[in-house]
């Protein structure tokens, strides 16, 4: 009954002119915030991209996190979207979602920001081993950062499944959770880490880079069937992702404005970290780091977050991958 109602509703919406049909080749892209500057440039400064809006169109849909984008891609409602390595791999294993990694948004490199866990300055927790029996914050249960964290804890004799109480705090509320005592150890990500550091009173305990370098956080992936059917359209999109990343890195002042327009965060807040040394690393040309991706796939398999090992090269198209000029 609900499905029939839905179809009737879709027809009604069409009659009401709510949908916008177009003959221009259109690519449906899922996105989220933060840290997708190349896409934000495409959204907010389309005139800077010679083909965007002229020879093809992007239908942007914002999502709350990467997991629902896997569902939407599996259902054929999206052609491309932002994905973490774990969500992409889980989509491949559980929903048989076949994708190509076409670009990379942000990751970690030696010297760049690395996601870290912090405690209050006066906390008795001085080392990772002291975390036994404590409550530890995580952004989302089963998130991509859990695997490296669990391995790091294991190296220090702490079993992430038995020895700590994991608490889902989300990134935005993590600082408050630490200061308010809801968790003993909380996870910090940008831009929240910059804000917490400016206020003081917190101490870094460990970061993901202590376990592993070159972590890949978010990438852009496209459905294989879509790319194989529309190679030229996908190529144009990836070319613009490449150009978008170049523009973001070349013109920080404008990027601050663009990101502020998208996220609604004041420029002063973004200016504390965005594209500074305390920010994540961005590959010039949005080139995916397939070695880093493979390392993460291996960690996820080792920690049981993936039921089997996956080969990162299986997600690589021979030609449609950033950087594309």
């Amino acid at each position: 009954m609900i499905r029939t109602l839905g179809l009737a509703l879709a027809a009604a919406m069409g009659l009401l002119g709510v949908s916008t049909a177009s003959a221009q080749p259109t690519i449906r892209v899922g996105w989220t915030i933060p840290a997708e500057e190349s896409k934000y440039w495409m959204m907010r400064r389309p005139d800077q991209f010679p083909e965007l809006g002229k020879s093809y169109k992007v239908e942007w849909v914002q999502f709350q996190g990467t997991a629902p984008m896997v569902q939407a891609m599996a259902a054929g409602a999206l052609d491309c979207s932002t994905q973490g390595v774990l969500s992409m791999a889980q989509g491949a294993i559980q929903a048989n979602l076949q994708t190509y990694i076409v670009a990379q948004h942000v990751g970690e490199k030696p010297g760049s920001f690395s996601v870290y866990w912090a405690v209050k300055d006066d906390s008795p927790i001085k080392t990772v081993a002291d975390m036994k029996g404590r409550s530890v914050g995580i952004n989302v249960f089963g998130s991509g950062i859990y695997g490296p964290m669990a391995l790091l804890l294991k190296r220090h004799g702490v079993d992430a499944e038995k020895d700590i109480k994991l608490v889902e705090t989300g990134f935005p509320a993590s600082e408050d959770a630490i200061r308010g005592g809801r968790v003993d150890v909380g996870v910090l990500n940008q831009p929240f880490a910059a804000r917490a550091e400016a206020k003081g009173g917190l101490r870094k305990l460990f970061s993901l880079s202590d376990q592993q370098q070159n972590i890949v956080h978010i990438m852009d992936v496209c459905r294989k069937d879509f790319v194989d059917r529309n190679p030229e359209l996908a190529r144009r999109y990836v070319r613009d992702l490449t150009a978008g990343m170049a523009k973001a890195l070349a013109n920080r002042d404008e990027t601050l404005k663009v990101v502020s327009e998208v996220t609604k965060a004041p420029i002063q807040v973004l200016d504390t970290y965005l594209l500074k040394p305390n920010d994540f690393a961005r590959e010039p040309g949005a080139k995916p780091n397939f070695e880093g991706i493979q390392a993460m796939l291996d960690i996820y398999a080792e920690t049981g977050m993936l039921s089997k090992k996956l080969d990162a090269t299986a997600f690589r198209h021979p030609t449609i991958v950033a950087p594309l000029e």
Binding site: I2, R3, G6, L9, A10, M13, V18, S19, R28, G30, V61, P68, Q71, A72, A75, A77, L78
Partner: peptide, 11 residues
């Protein structure tokens, strides 16, 4: 519902 009607206004 998103799986049936997509991610647009209809859902």
């Amino acid at each position: 519902i998103m799986l049936w009607l997509g991610v647009g206004d209809a859902s």
